[in-house]
Amino acid sequence: MAMAAADQCDYRDGKWVWDDEHGGGGGTRYDSENCDMKMTYKCVVNGKPDGGYLHWRWQPAGCNLSTLDPAAFLRLVRGKRLAFVADSSAHNQAEALFWRWAFPAPHDVNISTYWSPFLVRSEGHSKDYGMAHEVVILDALTEPWTADLDAMDMMVISAGHKFPHNAIYYDDGEIVGVYNRPDLNRTEMSVVTAREAKVGDTEAVLRKAVLDELTVAAARRQGLWFEVLDVTRLAAMRPDEHPGIYIFKHAYAGGPVPEMAPNDCLHWCTPGPVDMFNDTLMQMIAAGG
């Protein structure tokens, strides 16, 4: 494992600053209206009335974070296969980075996305929204991303959003935990379900689990490079950037919004914070060699 150099910037620590070079006098970072990406991320096209969310730029406390240069990024990953794995947030990030997925010579770069919200095998709501809960098999990995693992040079894995769902967790054929299933006579996974829990406790537990597994992976897999970008705090500072009801084009035609309107608070408009994730991804790849 090649960890970041001691003097590498801590991208988690910083603040969002107003930047008139994007989203105002100088135009947006890119034209999301004409990008071939999911309409649910195209807040401008969908009529989001407030344009302020286009102005903000992440400024780390200890360094400057350069805007990703597409040509430089392609040179950095030349001849590589890059995969984005896990939930729809990973797909959101991939679409903000690329809307072409194969770059021929001289770049010879291939980009893939894999739907695997729990990383391990799962059945239920994440595949069929008519299902009320998830069945998660902890000791079985999912296809096809694990089958393609050896062919990949770099993988960006997004994890965390799907775990606070109604679920039953199995290991070696036995139920080892449940979440929000009072009909089962099982002890709840109290560490993430405590009703008096402080805001952020669940995120802290999930974050610790990721960091713990990073340490385990580093000890077991010599020659591989692992690094974690913790975006919990900086993402939580940008609720204005969620599509909200503007997952649909011109939602409710400017009229009153129903109390139970669908509200997307997991993904991001583009341009937006996912571009900062990709700015940082480029710096992390460059630092990792």
Rank of each mutant, 00 (worst) to 15 (best):
1 M>V: 13
3 M>W: 10
5 A>M: 03
10 D>A: 01
10 D>E: 13
12 R>G: 07
13 D>L: 14
15 K>Q: 13
20 D>Y: 10
25 G>Q: 13
26 G>N: 08
28 T>C: 06
30 Y>L: 02
31 D>S: 06
33 E>M: 10
35 C>Q: 14
37 M>H: 06
45 V>N: 03
45 V>Q: 12
48 K>R: 13
52 G>F: 15
54 L>E: 08
55 H>D: 06
56 W>D: 00
58 W>E: 07
63 C>G: 07
65 L>G: 05
72 A>L: 08
73 F>D: 03
79 G>E: 13
82 L>S: 06
87 D>N: 06
90 A>S: 15
91 H>E: 05
92 N>V: 04
94 A>E: 04
100 R>D: 15
105 A>C: 03
107 H>S: 13
108 D>W: 03
112 S>Q: 11
113 T>F: 12
114 Y>T: 04
115 W>I: 00
122 S>V: 04
123 E>Q: 14
123 E>N: 08
125 H>A: 06
129 Y>D: 11
131 M>R: 15
135 V>P: 00
141 L>H: 01
143 E>V: 00
144 P>D: 10
145 W>D: 05
145 W>G: 00
146 T>H: 12
147 A>Y: 05
148 D>F: 12
150 D>P: 02
150 D>F: 07
154 M>F: 01
155 M>Q: 11
155 M>H: 01
158 S>G: 12
160 G>S: 00
169 Y>Q: 00
171 D>T: 06
171 D>C: 12
171 D>K: 15
174 E>K: 15
182 P>L: 12
190 S>V: 12
191 V>Y: 14
194 A>L: 11
197 A>E: 08
203 E>Y: 09
203 E>Q: 11
203 E>N: 12
204 A>K: 14
205 V>Q: 09
206 L>R: 02
212 D>P: 05
215 T>I: 11
217 A>I: 05
223 G>M: 08
226 F>T: 04
228 V>S: 05
228 V>Q: 04
229 L>V: 04
240 D>M: 07
247 I>Q: 12
250 H>Q: 14
253 A>N: 15
254 G>Q: 10
254 G>P: 06
255 G>A: 13
255 G>Q: 13
260 M>E: 14
262 P>H: 06
263 N>L: 11
267 H>N: 09
268 W>K: 02
274 V>Y: 09
276 M>I: 15
279 D>W: 08
280 T>I: 15
280 T>M: 15
283 Q>I: 01
286 A>W: 07
288 G>Q: 05
289 G>S: 07
